[in-house]
Structure formats: structure tokens, C-alpha cells
Design a protein around this nucleic acid. Structure first.
Length: 679
RNA sequence: GGCUAGGUAGCUCAGUUGGUUAGAGCGACGGACUCAUAACCCGUAGGUCGGCGGUUCAAUUCCGCCUCUAGCCA
């Protein structure tokens, strides 16, 4: 097991400083932290740095809305972020900010060196400009009608209803999301990073074992399309760093964000004697550098970032590890369902170790999304951690305490079983190293089952009642506690706080991986106190309820300024005869099916009690045919039939909502029957 | 729309370089035990491996199409 100590620098993506950390963020920090703790346990020098990503238009606007300076906003958010991470036992060696002197230095340096190498160009571009706010508008701050499907209130780059992507100038009736003014075109000089200069280098790098294979596959697409120049400047007003020698021009937030990794590390170097920046970032550094990121920001980290570093004579990363997203109960986190759970909301009720364990049990080395199934979460944590692992200590310690003065025997009852656990540790270590945490957890839990089976076979509670078998009892319980110690050692990267408590119980030093080969014998242990308690269903319910309350508070705040009516005001007054012309009827959906070739439509067969109608409804994004069949709803029965590509639609069903998943058909109260008129 | 992933028991996931009865944990059901945080141990039931078509002696595994989910499109 002896190997040379490695020097490793690890980062997680920098959280954006305009809002709180939620449990989706935590997947990444927990994944990284487990890996880092594992490396440290193996005796390597492993440093984990991170920072707040503090620049950009959203932060500038958020601060303006709150009536404070951006600096005040990011300082406050940084404290919240740090507290959340600390309470989740994420052990950063340093946490810094992109709005720092170090970052300004390295951003300018990297820009300057690339400029000297001929990797920066400039030209004038035309961009949407808000004449009221006097600022250029990023795509996401322009709203309008989708040019493809006409959906209202869509963002400047893609439509959430039909999924089309387009450029903001294609949007119909565009308005600034900041002021509501109609944007105008305005010219401005921008600076560009000539990514194309790095094509050869990047092709080699992306296929050089630095990325997961599926990520490398994905990047093939970018090479095929050709590498474009990357716009790295933004105009004032902008919260960020001014570009040297170009007053009024600022570095785009995504330029200086990854440089924040360097800045945070530099900040750590300055307070750590003997830690040299160049050892980890110099062109010929022999140390290892890893970035853990979400799959959504792959191209920044796998294309721009290595190219920028290479162009500025710094080393490139050893590897970039991407992970998937978190869903809750199989769906995207949702504020209205109460599954948009903030880190703090979780921490107010539950032990962070539970979530660390659950995520570990789900995480592999790939980029698949992982699901937090709340029912499964409760069952699994209770069963695995409390029922299996902690239980081993709980069921053995009583005998040791009562019968042997709290002292372990001087030999094990079953050395081969102990050796079997130790050798399984090699496989477990390999899983950790390869970020196959779910495999590691499966192995460890199989061992925990073995340990419980062993105790069950030996039946110490039977031995305890028999005369002259004290030594045997002593050996069996010592064996059980030694198996427990190994399990805790194996789980230590995942459960640092539980490991610490266990170490206090066993009265031992923090476990290192190499300590695990030798059993703990002839050693006094402390009285056993519960190391972990079970999750109650009510706690999960409390978290979901608290998350919903958060939403209600937010809605109450925003309702004043922008209720649903603000963007979609009530139409002109009509007289009753106008309304009476519309013949609304209750119908039963007797059949619903997909329409071949149609992206948005479902074909519905509607029963009007005496007549059936064929209707095409644009609700495919929100409903499956199965969930519609048998339902009652309301239709406009006297709408002129309309010929569509797929057939004739004989009416329309009524639904509300902005579109996409958020579409809700009307349903009558019980008692209504097909054919009834709605009036 | 294009691309990259994913769709396997009620739930969460393994797995199959194509080959006899597709696995685990949890849950359900039955039994045993009482040391242990109603924990643990033994056993039983559960799956047209997203759908359709193709290649093959043989497909859950390979190919094509479709569908659903997620992400990205500078």
C-alpha cells in the first residue's frame, strides 16, 4: 500500500453569488469533498479550493434591485455560501472570490499574454440596447414572442414552449426584462478570444484522456461546427474587471470565473508557508489539477479554459470531471412542489451526513443525472447507516462495557474475516479513486451485511449466558467492533462527522487508510452513544413544507411589482351576447393519442354525449395520452373546424398556463356530464 | 431542429464483449431471534430489460426508426 505521496489541486465550480446554495449544488461539492477526503486519507497532499463567482449583469441588477452596492451583495452571499458548505462538512482548504486582487491580476495576465500571442481580436458588433437603463442587454434579459411558435414571454435565446433556439433579434415584439422598454440596436466594439488558434491543441487535449469519453464525444460536435471566436468583453455598466487599456470595457464574467480557481489558490499560497503557486500552475508543473463541474458548463472548462491557459503559458488541467444534475422524485427541482430545497432549509432539519451518504450511493463517474427520491432517501439512510453500520457498534459495545470494563480483547475471533474486509478495502479504494462512489457504497454495505451475519451466527447474547465462555464472548465482540472500525474507515470520506464521533467512541486517532490493516486490540473504548439517529418521515415533510413557504414569501414580494396581470393584462370589456356566442361544453376524453410528426399536438377524441369530435390540442408537452383518457374537460364546441396538416380539428379544449410543462386543462367539478353547456 | 447521455422488479440501482432459470438493496409477504436505535438473521413473491422493425441458430445486449427524460447549442 505504500506509494509516493501525490500533490493534487482540486476545484469545484464556483457558485454564483446572486443566490443561495441549494441541494442541487451540493451534489458537486459533496462529490468533490468525498474525493478530496479520500485522497487526504491516503496520505496525499490534496488541496481543495473554491470561490464565489461574483461578477456579471445578474449580480449588478440584483444589487441594484436591493438598493445596495454589488460589493455588499457579494460579501453577504459569500458568508451564506461559506456557512452552508461548512455545515455540510465540505472541507475547502480555501474559499475566495473572483472579485479579488488575485483574480484581477491573473485575469489581466492571461488576457495580456494571449493578446501578445495574437489570440485576441476586436471588432464592432451590433447588440440589443436598453435606452431607458442605458445598458446593453444579455440575451436572457430580452423577452418577447417566439418566432417559431408565437409563445409569449420567451427569453432571447430559446423558447421554452417549442424548444426552438434563435437569436434575440428574431424575437417578435421584444422588450427589455430590466425596464420593459423596447430594445434598440446599437454598435459596440468587442474583444474576442480566437479559439480557432487552438484547434490542434484542443483536439489533442480533448482526446488525450483528460475528459470522460461521453464528454469528449459531445465536444466533437464543436469541432465539426468549427471553433468560433469567443466574445470576452462587455460594455459598461458591468460589474467585473475593466480590461487593461480599454476603459469602459469589462471582462465577461465567464472569462474571469475559472481564473478564480487560480486566484483562490494564490490566496491560499500567500497564507501557507512552503506552498508555491508555480508548482501547481506553472507550464511544466508535475502536480495534478482536477476540476469537478456540472455537465452544463463543459465547454467553458473543456475548450475555452485549457485554450486560455495554454495561450498564457500555464499548465492545462490533468482532468475535468463532469457530473449530472439532481432531480427530486424524478423531476426537476420545483419550487411549487417544495422540492427546490435550499441547503439551509435542509440543514435546519436534517443531518448533512444523510445527504452525503445518499448522494455517494448514487454517484458514479458518468454524467447521468441522479435522483433524490425522498422516500428512498429515508429508507436507505435508515436501513444502511442506522440499521446496518451503526448497529454493529451498538450491539457489541454493551458486552464490552459491562463484562470487560470497556476493554477490547487481545485477539480477534476470526482473523480471516478481518483480512477479507481489509482486502476488500483495495477494491473500495479503487472505486473512490475512479469516482465510482456508488460502487464503493455497495461494496461497503455488502461488508456491513457480512458483519451482521457474523454476529448473528456467533450469537454473543447466547454465549454471554453460559459459564466459562467469557473469553469467546470477548473475542466475538472485539471482532464485531473491529469490523465496525473498518466500515467506518471505509466510509470516512463520505461521513466525516460520523467517523469523528466513532473515533471518539473507539478512542482512536483520525483513521488513515493505512491504519486499517491492523486490528484494534487490547484497547479501551468509551461508552457507546448513538452515532446517528433515524430520519423521521415528519422531518422530510417539514423540509418540503418549508421549501414551499420560501416560495410563498418570494411570490408575495414579487407579486407587488409583477403579478400575472402585469405581463398579460385583462382584455377589453365585452357584452354578454358576445360571450353567449361561445358554446362551451363538458366533454369526456375517450381517446388520446400521439400524432406522428407533430411536436406539440395530441389527437383527442371527445365525447359530447351523442356526438364525438376529433380535436388536435397543443398540450403534448404537459400531458401523456394515458393521463388524459377518461378525463372530463371543457371544449369550445362551436368553433369553426380548422384544417391542419394532420387532419381537421373540430373545436378546441381549454387550458391555462405559459406553456411547456406548465399547461393545465380545465376540469369540471364532479357531477358534470358530457354534453352539458357551460354558462 | 442538431448533438451528448439515459429509460432494467412497487422504489433506487447493478449487469449483459449476444447464448441455459436477468441480479442487489429497500419495500411487500412469511418465519426465526431478542445483543442492538421495532435494529439484525433466514425464506417467498415480483420483471414481454421504454415501443416497433431489422440482422442472427439465438437480442434486454448489435443496427434502424419512434417515444419519454435531462443537458448543451459559444
Amino acid at each position: 500500500m505504500t506509494q509516493k505521496a501525490r500533490k493534487i489541486l482540486v476545484t469545484s465550480a464556483l457558485p454564483y453569488a446572486n443566490g443561495p446554495i441549494h441541494i442541487g449544488h451540493m451534489v458537486e461539492y459533496i462529490q468533490t469533498d468525498i474525493w478530496v477526503r479520500f485522497q487526504k486519507m491516503r496520505g496525499h497532499q490534496c488541496l481543495y479550493v473554491c470561490a464565489d463567482d461574483a461578477h456579471g449583469t445578474p449580480i449588478m441588477l440584483r444589487a441594484r434591485k436591493e438598493g445596495i452596492e454589488p460589493e455588499a451583495l457579494i460579501a453577504r452571499v459569500a458568508e451564506e455560501h461559506k456557512a452552508d458548505f461548512a455545515d455540510f462538512n465540505v472541507g475547502f482548504d480555501n474559499y475566495h472570490s473572483t472579485h479579488s486582487d488575485e483574480n484581477r491580476h491573473y485575469a489581466s495576465l492571461i488576457y495580456q499574454r494571449n493578446k501578445d500571442q495574437g489570440n485576441i481580436s476586436n471588432r464592432t458588433i451590433t447588440q440589443a440596447y436598453d435606452p431607458v437603463e442605458e445598458m446593453f442587454l444579455p440575451d436572457r434579459f430580452i423577452k418577447g414572442e417566439c418566432p417559431k411558435c408565437g409563445a409569449q414571454d420567451q427569453y432571447g435565446d430559446n423558447c421554452e414552449v417549442c424548444g426552438a433556439s434563435y437569436s434575440p433579434n428574431e424575437l417578435k415584439n421584444p422588450v427589455s426584462a430590466v425596464s420593459g422598454a423596447t430594445p434598440v440596436d446599437r454598435d459596440s466594439e468587442h474583444y474576442f478570444f480566437k479559439l480557432g488558434n487552438f484547434e490542434t491543441m484542443l483536439k489533442e487535449w480533448t482526446r488525450g484522456g483528460h475528459l470522460q469519453h461521453e464528454v469528449a464525444n459531445k465536444l466533437g460536435e464543436w469541432f465539426e461546427a468549427g471553433l468560433h471566436e469567443w466574445d470576452i468583453s462587455r460594455d459598461a455598466p458591468y460589474f467585473g474587471f475593466e480590461i487593461p487599456d480599454h476603459p469602459g470595457k469589462f471582462f465577461y464574467v465567464w472569462l474571469d470565473a475559472p481564473i478564480g480557481y487560480m486566484a483562490s489558490f494564490k490566496n491560499l499560497c500567500d497564507k501557507t508557508p512552503g506552498l508555491a503557486f508555480d508548482d501547481f500552475w506553472g507550464k511544466d508543473a508535475s502536480t495534478e489539477l482536477y476540476h469537478f463541474i456540472g455537465k452544463d458548463i463543459i465547454y467553458f472548462h473543456a475548450l475555452f479554459w485549457p485554450a486560455m491557459l495554454h495561450g498564457a503559458d500555464f499548465r492545462t488541467p490533468t482532468a475535468v470531471f463532469s457530473h449530472g444534475f439532481l432531480t427530486v422524485d424524478g423531476q426537476k427541482m420545483s419550487k411549487s412542489r417544495g422540492t427546490f430545497i435550499k441547503a439551509r432549509t435542509y440543514l435546519d432539519t436534517l443531518n448533512p451526513e444523510y445527504l452525503r451518504y445518499y448522494f455517494a450511493a448514487k454517484l458514479g463517474s458518468g454524467i447521468e443525472d441522479i435522483d433524490l427520491n425522498l422516500e428512498d432517501f429515508l429508507a436507505r439512510v435508515n436501513s444502511d447507516l442506522v440499521g446496518k453500520v451503526v448497529n454493529i457498534a451498538s450491539r457489541c459495545s454493551g458486552f464490552i462495557k459491562k463484562r470487560f470494563d470497556g476493554k477490547l480483547a487481545d485477539q480477534l475471533d476470526n482473523q480471516p474475516l478481518f483480512d477479507n474486509f481489509v482486502s476488500a478495502g483495495q477494491q473500495i479504494a479503487a472505486c473512490y479513486e475512479n469516482r465510482e462512489f456508488s460502487k464503493a457504497v455497495r461494496e461497503i454495505m455488502a461488508l456491513a451485511d457480512k458483519a451482521n451475519q457474523y454476529i448473528d451466527e456467533k450469537k454473543p447474547w447466547v454465549i454471554a449466558k453460559e459459564e466459562g465462555r467469557a473469553q469467546e464472548l470477548h473475542a466475538v465482540c472485539t471482532m464485531g467492533l473491529n469490523l465496525f472500525r473498518l466500515l467506518i474507515g471505509f466510509l470516512r470520506p463520505i461521513l466525516p462527522a460520523t467517523a469523528e464521533k466513532s473515533e471518539a467512541f473507539l478512542q482512536i486517532q483520525p483513521l488513515a487508510w493505512n491504519d486499517l490493516q491492523k486490528p484494534l486490540l487490547n484497547h479501551e473504548i468509551a461508552a457507546f452513544k448513538p452515532l446517528m439517529t433515524r430520519i423521521e418521515n415528519s422531518q422530510i415533510e417539514a423540509i418540503v413544507a418549508a421549501s414551499k413557504e420560501d416560495l410563498e414569501k418570494q411570490e408575495a414580494i414579487s407579486a407587488k411589482s409583477q403579478g400575472a396581470l402585469a405581463s398579460d393584462p385583462i382584455s377589453d370589456i365585452i357584452e354578454y351576447p358576445d360571450f353567449a356566442k361561445v358554446d362551451l361544453r363538458i366533454v369526456k376524453i375517450i381517446k388520446a393519442q400521439h400524432v406522428e410528426g407533430a411536436e406539440k399536438l395530441l389527437q383527442l377524441t371527445l365525447d359530447l354525449d351523442g356526438e364525438t369530435r376529433n380535436v388536435f390540442a397543443g398540450i403534448k408537452s404537459a400531458y401523456t395520452p394515458e393521463e388524459l383518457e377518461g378525463k372530463l374537460t371543457v371544449m369550445v364546441a362551436n368553433l369553426a373546424p380548422r384544417k391542419m396538416r394532420f387532419g381537421v380539428s373540430e373545436g378546441m379544449v381549454l387550458a391555462a398556463g405559459p406553456g411547456g410543462k406548465e399547461l393545465f386543462i380545465l376540469t369540471p367539478d364532479s357531477g358534470a356530464a358530457p354534453g352539458m353547456r357551460v354558462k
